[in-house]
């Protein structure tokens, strides 16, 4: 609904009510969202830029950044491939159990992050299903990088698929059918018609998926074992520093994550403005 001509000027009681509602909403947004965000940056620079720079240049901080990047670099592409495959199957074919598949894709959104980590401990941990076998072959999953990746993959699994399914549903399959009738092979159809049509939605999904992958705390905290320099991602580093009363250090790393969040929000908003019609209508993107 864009601006519609008002038929008559508003009376003052109504204008007052409007003003009160707007002020209430904005005060809430400021106190509840803007203030915590500001706190992060203020606390990070409480002892000046020098302390901030030093805090993020410590080797643990650097290795946490590297690990966070590594985990996201593995988890995001995995879920992109999955998301495209799942969306293709869900929107282009009729089959029994489709609703169940849809529910399964959404499932990770309604599972507590702690449980998301726990299930992998129960699979691969020392007392888990595959624990003894893994130990015999000297393969470490829990308290090691593979565990972090698995937990992150689980948590971020729905993002890309959830973004693509409604869009591909609404686009329909006519263009792809047209490509087939015109003689395109399966992959030609995919790369020349399907992919260009979903590119912005895909990128949007990747953006949200990546933000979550880099910021995930609960699930990775359970499988990480908190080994400094080896299995601590940035959010875990924040927690450890905070618990050691290294507030500036904690907030310094946290400010980098907050910056990432702001960047994500900015790009996301920009994409919604520019390519809104090529994205799915926005249901909230989960956690």
């Amino acid at each position: 609904m864009t601006s519609r001509l008002r038929r008559r000027p508003l009376g003052w009681p109504r204008r007052l009510a409007r003003l009160v509602l707007i002020v209430l909403a904005l005060v809430f947004l400021l106190l509840f969202l803007v203030l915590p965000l500001t706190t992060v940056f203020i606390e990070a620079f409480r002892q000046g830029v020098g302390a901030f720079v030093e805090a993020i240049r410590q080797p643990e901080a650097l290795s946490a950044m590297r690990l966070t990047l590594l985990v996201a670099t593995i988890a995001v592409p995995l879920n992109v491939v999955f998301g495209v495959a799942a969306a293709w199957a869900m929107t282009r074919f009729q089959f029994r159990g489709k609703a169940f598949l849809g529910a399964l894709i959404d499932l990770p959104f309604s599972v507590s992050p702690v449980i998301s980590g726990l299930i992998y401990v129960l699979m691969f941990g020392a007392q888990g299903w595959f624990g003894p076998w893994l130990e015999r072959h000297d393969i470490k999953i829990i308290f090691a990088v593979p565990g972090l990746v698995l937990a992150t993959v689980f948590i971020t699994l729905p993002f890309v698929a959830r973004e693509l399914i409604p869009l591909m549903e609404s686009q329909g399959s006519e263009e792809e059918e047209a490509a087939r009738v015109l003689g395109a092979s399966g992959w030609q159809m995919f790369f020349r018609v399907t992919l260009p049509n979903i590119r912005w939605a895909l990128l949007y999904g990747v953006l949200l998926c990546n933000a979550r992958a880099m910021g995930e705390f609960g699930a990775v905290s359970v499988v990480s074992g908190h080994i400094r320099g080896l299995t601590t991602t940035m959010p875990l580093e924040v927690e450890m520093r905070y618990n050691e009363y290294d507030y500036v250090g904690a907030f310094a790393v946290a400010s980098l994550l907050a910056l990432l969040a702001l960047l994500t929000l900015g790009i996301k908003t920009l994409m919604e403005w520019r390519y809104g019609d090529e994205l799915a209508t926005h249901a909230p993107g989960g956690h």
Binding site: E174, E175, E177, A178, A179, L182, A184, R192, P196
Partner: peptide
Amino acid sequence: MVFQHYALFRHLTVTENIAFGLRV
């Protein structure tokens, strides 16, 4: 085939649309 809603490839120009069947 001409589809009911034409099914033109929205990301391709008119020329590219027409050439599609030959290019693939």
